[in-house]
Design a protein around this nucleic acid. Sequence first.
DNA 1: AGAGTGACTGCAG
DNA 2: ACTGCAGCCACTC
Length: 141
Amino acid sequence: MGGTHDADDDEVARRKASIIAVVRAIPAGTVASYGWVAAEAGLPGRARLVGRVLGELPAGSGVPWHRVMRAGGRLAFPVGSVDAARQTRALAAEGVRVHGDRVPADVLAGAATLDRLLWGPTAASTTTPKPADTARPRRRT
DNA sequence: AGAGTGACTGCAG
DNA sequence: ACTGCAGCCACTC
């Protein structure tokens, strides 16, 4: 096979797969932040990458992109935009009431609980993505 | 190679 | 609570 098969491309595809796997693992009725998803996918600090990957998702991909929100449980899009309305609608269909551009704290707390659901002691699921990648601490005060 | 941009985030004012 | 700024990462021009 000679050809153009760079390990770099493979790495990129692998990141996308990890991100999508985490998003798909978010239970209906709960939401998670971009940063949280990135961290769980083994890509701490790549919240923006999550947004890009979700934006590339084709319609009907089955990936619950609407369950991914900004930090603090805020809508990913500005209120009034078509996408914002769509996300609000999709969340409402799952019982999540969006108040303005934010969701109740308890819904967001569900994401924190997810941590235990996914990587908890009783998790041990074979469908869980792998952390891989070395965690790189953010240099912040 | 340098500058600009964005489905991000946290701290300051 | 809101806006602005800085840091960061990946991509495009």
